[in-house]
Write a protein that binds this DNA or RNA. Sequence first.
RNA 1: UCCCCAAUAGCUCAGUCGGUAGAGCGGGUGGCUGUUAACCACCAUGUCCCUGGUUCGAGUCCGGGUUGGGGAGCCA
Length: 436
Amino acid sequence: MRSVRAGREVAFIALNDGSCLASLQVVAEAGMAGFDEVCRLGTGSAVVVHGVLRPSPAAGQAVELAAERVEVIGPADDAYPLQKKRHSFEYLRTVAHLRPRTNTFGAVFRLRSSLAQAVHRFFAERGFLYVQTPIITANDCEGAGELFRVTVLDPDQPPRCNGKVDFGADFFGQPTGLTVSGQLEGELFAQAFTDIYTFGPTFRAENSNTARHAAEFWMIEPEMAFADLMDDARLAEEFFRYLCRHVLEDCAEDMAFFDAQIEKGLLERVRTVAETSFEVMEYSEAIGHLEKAPVSFQFPVSWGLDLQSEHERYITERVVGGPVFLINYPKDIKAFYMRLNDDGRTVAAMDLLVPKVGEIIGGSQREERLDLLTGRMAGVGIDPASLWWYLETRRWGSTPHAGFGLGFERLIMYLSGMENIRDVIPFPRTPRHAEF
RNA sequence: UCCCCAAUAGCUCAGUCGGUAGAGCGGGUGGCUGUUAACCACCAUGUCCCUGGUUCGAGUCCGGGUUGGGGAGCCA
């Protein structure tokens, strides 16, 4: 129950089961048994109503339920923390066990569910194999500092060997942690199934305190064999625009709510992306635009430096005025697995930049040539022995392949207008927060 | 991790020059013949985040801490 409006002769209950934003109007008349009790029910109560659905004589709803009997299943007293008024998102985070009962969080989590199903449908329609990559991994190639350690050793008295903790005595016989990405395993599967995708939780122990970072979040990572960077960009564009169209069509009521209550102009923004084809721009060209820009940036711009958020937004908002792929970044600012271009100084990387948020998708063509890959790993200090299985795919039947990653929460934020990642995750995990 | 801001009633907030606490919403009570986060009247809200200091006197000024938020870095 969202609210009760009681008069002497008639009472109205706004009843919501979470299936959609709109509540059902229940009408109870004074002659009904238990009418007085119904009038005293508080927001948050659970009831079962028996009655007749009929056209509503008043504006505001097409139909209403004329109650014949109201069963109070679970009453709620006046200490119920949610009132029939607007609360701050900060406050609602402290009652995350109850906030899905609000209009905004109802809309957010319906959108999240619908989007997850649309992601699977998109790839299923295109014959992609869905692979569940491991949550626990011994793969520390992306930097052990940000990995959550997984261990069964006694933290007070771990076994030691030469003064160091002996992970050889641990459950897996080696140091393990929670995965930071399923990409490397996804690449292995692409060499068998051609087109695959992962969609699952990932973890970062980074002490990030921002509205866009969480310690536990979900990522979508497709990988295609026999594909180059432009194939990758085409898939990313098709995927992103598919999801925009999906929420406009299948979540229309909730999207209208976001447009009215969360971000004015959201519908127009999402429609534009759904209808516009994306541009492609070389990193070098972007640097040229930024160097000539008639605005002053906080961070410096020159060839070889990574782009900051302010630069990305300038390119997509001011130069292009829409979504744009930036491609072919300097190799020194990108990951070791990205394919070296023929110029020898850039790699086949792409970032999709969109107005308002900047980068939303990052991807690349992968280095399929064994000698160049081992060379890059040596250059950045990664021991090839630790990734022997990854390298073996380059030894036998190696194909050109490419893929990208999309942070699921950032997609939801983009499509809902919600500005804090803590408010698009049912029970968010951030530094010092693992309640609920 | 760094920088900045904030913390006052259940919630959202105001609180002037340092002089002993306010509003709206919510709640309670009553009223109301169909409401739309109903409306009208009345009633009660309190460890002013904690701690130390300055002062005759601190919600207000200063130091330390805690918690929350914004930004940056890292990135998704």
